[in-house]
Design a protein around this nucleic acid. Structure first.
Lengths: 384, 384
DNA sequence: TTGAAAGCGCTAACAC
DNA sequence: GTGTTAGCGCTTTCAA
């Protein structure tokens, strides 16, 4: 394999000028087909492919897109193993990764070069959004994990080049948005619990100021008022998405009220829900016999735990894919609708049961829950 | 905010030439401190920062590094929710992501620009490794998720520029390696089970040809022969890392032997272990009373399931960090040791118990396992 | 349909 | 210390 093949080499070997090679590679119409073929063939032989830096530099308008991940390094929260050892955990773990996969899948399908940059909130103070884009010669950017307090969040609304945010809506001429209807989906989730017979529900909320949380909470309230019921504000507990805080909050609640009050926990995320379930079990209670629990996200761990977590799956990979697609279209001037809401759907696993037979369901076996047939138990029952 | 600030603008505003501005920005020694200050100040005012493409192009040797993630899009394996809905899952999910985080953390700490490229096996056929590096003007590359069958795997050994692989060792002049001592760690893990009293152990292996699996299996054999014991080859089952396959394999085994044979499952990864535990429970058996299970990786879900998964945590983030560090050093000619093995340690949760009281431990409660005090039950007992 | 030439924004070698 | 200049590898007029 030859190294260092430049456009000139190829030009010389093909007996044409550099300009013509460029034309061949960029699908210009004004080039004789056979010339193009020949050039492309020779280029392939010597292993030539154009240097992106040079392309970027020479073409007037930069055309590349990039994915910028914000909250990866900062959003680190700790916890402790039972043996006392400290472990770290990412809140955004699942979501960032899947969104990235989806976006990259789109880029790969279209043969687009789309680098991913991990850019923390802290870095955003050192370099402005405009600077970052200029520095990388971006023609458009995909942003995920932005918080409303981030510098880039504010800069986006005045962005001169197209960009797309995921989950964090930003108003601006050139800003697209891909998200989920948080209000609607939480209304649905709440109704699901109400339909199951629950009347005393505790909401385990995330960060008080996070937009998603605000919207989701609104959905809960909507469901309540549609049935002319009231959600007491003291039944909304805040956990900040942190595992240890969630545990503390749930432990407190259980210590205070035990089974005397709520029959279900409605969680703003799967991570919260999973921790809640674990905490409930550690306190000697059962899910779903004593308490039902639902989450939101569709993260993988929800399948692994017992009982399986009933949740709303928002298909994060599709979200990433849709975001990349929207950005690409915006960059090409195909400015359809700049706001895309993705579908979601309820995944019923085993963490919800009707509340009425709480006390006759003690000592259940893994394969049967007493009050409700979980998918697992059903499957087991069928096969045995 | 002014837009389009180039080096010339800054030069003009500062009353110097472009060359001097360049000197100021690149920490050259031969520039008057106050000139530098002034230039930097003015640059900041107009929001200037040098374009990477231009830098790359003009400097002879390209100096940038990048992280290339291979198996993200291809390594997709499906499964089914209990309700029949199909879900997709990434085998590498946890690991890719955490390694990426670690590598990026290093880059950010050093103020290095390190784009992440998601580059599937399929793409590797369309563009050679050399081409990719040239195209992106890389000075070095970090590769994760490479399989021995990948095109880039083969290309690496002849790489002219420094590169570092994670977990997949490649022999070559310019290739560094960051990994874990798979043999040693699996010897330890096996001994842990043997020490607990297990004599009939089933190994749930991954892909037969994967290097990591080969090494890990070697570790198991070592532990056995150190005690002059024999691991029967029919007790090594292959699952290919796929959830559904794992379930099938374990189900088969249990259907055939029930509790009559093995007392423990030694799994090559946490994902396998978690699926194994779930399958065992679905079949009506208990972990750890009927079967002990251990995994390897330290993935987050291992904490969420019940019982907690006893496993070897290999701290993937540190792995990514170490890899980026090694690459950076290699690129700077600080060629210390090109092979870095990272520490690992056993995390004891609740999935292992001695095998001798299998049958007197039925019907246990979450808080007490009969045969062994798990960390959870211990904690619970202490607090109540 | 193609070649020639002027840059894109920067660095680096060589003057002064 | 600083200015000048010649590229880096490509795209893109403008001619031919």
């Amino acid at each position: 394999m030859k190294l260092a093949a430049s456009i000139k080499e190829v030009a010389k070997l093909s007996g044409v000028s550099a300009g013509t090679v460029s034309r061949a590679f960029n699908n210009y119409p004004d080039i004789k087909p056979e010339t193009r073929e020949r050039i492309l063939r020779i280029a392939k032989e010597v292993g030539y492919s154009p240097t992106l830096s040079a392309k970027n530099l020479s073409s007037k308008k930069s055309s590349g897109m990039a994915l910028i991940l914000s909250q990866l390094l900062s959003e680190r929260i700790g916890g402790r193993e039972p043996d006392g050892r400290v472990f770290m955990q990412h809140t955004m773990e699942d979501s960032s990764f899947l969104i990235m996969c989806g976006a990259c899948r789109y880029a790969i399908e279209r043969n687009l070069d789309m680098p991913v940059y991990v850019y923390s909130s802290e870095l955003q103070n050192r370099k402005t959004y405009e600077q970052f884009c200029r520095e990388h010669r971006l023609g458009g950017a995909l942003l995920f994990g932005l918080q409303t307090t981030d510098n880039y969040y504010k800069a986006l609304s005045e962005s001169t080049l197209p960009c797309v945010t995921v989950d964090t809506r930003v108003l601006g001429e050139n800003v697209g948005y891909v998200g989920t209807d948080n209000i609607e989906s939480f209304r649905m989730l709440t109704e699901y619990l109400l339909d199951a017979g629950h009347r005393e529900i505790v909401v385990l909320n995330g960060r008080k100021v996070a937009t998603v949380c605000l919207e989701r909470l609104a959905g809960v309230y909507e469901a309540y008022s549609a049935r002319e019921m009231q959600l007491r504000s003291e039944d909304v507990l805040y956990t900040d998405f942190r595992e240890d805080l969630t545990e503390k909050v749930v432990t407190n609640y259980l210590g205070k009220y035990g089974k005397s009050r709520a029959t279900a926990f409605l969680c703003m995320s799967d991570l919260i829900a999973i921790t809640a379930i674990r905490t409930i079990q550690k306190r000697g209670f059962s899910v779903p016999d004593d308490f039902s629990v639902v989450g939101y996200d569709g993260m993988a761990s929800g399948r692994f735990i017992y009982p399986g977590l009933t949740t709303i799956d928002q298909d994060l990979e599709s979200k990433g894919y849709a975001a990349a697609r929207l950005l690409n279209r915006m960059m090409n001037g195909q400015v359809e609708e700049k706001e895309v809401l993705l579908p979601y759907h309820l995944v019923e696993r085993g963490s919800v049961a009707p509340p009425w037979n709480r006390d006759c369901a003690k000592g259940h076996d893994l394969a049967e829950h007493g009050s409700i047939m979980t998918p697992w138990s059903r499957e087991y029952a069928e096969e045995c």
